[in-house]
Amino acid sequence: MSVVNDETANLSVSALGMVYEVPNGEPVEALNDVSFSLEQGRLLTLLGPSGCGKTTLLNILAGFLAPTSGTVTLGGSPITGPSQERGMVFQQGALFEWLRVSDNISFGPRMNGQRKRVSKPLVDQLLATVGLAGFDDKRVYELSGGMQQRVALARCLANDPKIILMDEPLGALDALTREKMQGLVLELWQNTGKTVVLVTHSVEEALYLGDQLFVMAPRPGRIERSYELPFAKIGLSTSPRELKASPEFIEKREEVLSLIWEMEEQIMGHEDGR
């Protein structure tokens, strides 16, 4: 759709800090001086060991958490709370199980005053986009985990957000479904031209999906290294298996893995030293 750079979708994060007060303990620095900017249409993946603040960062971007210091702006205006211009996809779908698939997808437009009848064509179109045409009347709990995540993606897209935030969206899926869904995420990203920020635990997924990758480190949570990656763009025209078996991919994967491995070792040492 929109290929021209839309400056209102530019994300800017500067000197972000987040400190959690712990009762009867030292405060935990979940984020320390995190700064970056993300142009419209990029797909940023966040990777790192647990406790590195990647989910905290995503929650700040979504507006669910207010940072203790620093600023976040989208298209120049500061983020102060959740908004429909920032769509969310959660690990477990967070679908509304009391609604049918179609009503889940039209939830956003309906909250903004649109009649169910009016949103019908949009729902059908989105269902087709995520490969679930004809499933509009199903109950969400009748669907498999992968299908539920497809509904979650469609529900998020229904509001036409400027940016899509994904919190380990494929983390609960089995390996085969996960690979298929990675393809779908790439496809949606390419076809909609949306900015996407995706948190993942999987190195392979972070490399495959991200055209930019931040490897984050814990204590305090920070961006340890940033990578510009070619794989997401190649991935659109190449088969995922072929791409993931290519020497370039494997080389990058080992590099990132050893970086994370090192961090994990340090954490273990840190904990043993207590």
Binding site: A62, F64, G81, P82, S83, Q84, R86, G87, M88, F90, A94, F96, F107, G108, M111, N112, R155, C156, N159
Partner: peptide, 8 residues
């Protein structure tokens, strides 16, 4: 969270 992000 999902509901708020969808504009509720």
């Amino acid at each position: 969270h999902a509901a708020y992000s969808l504009g509720a």
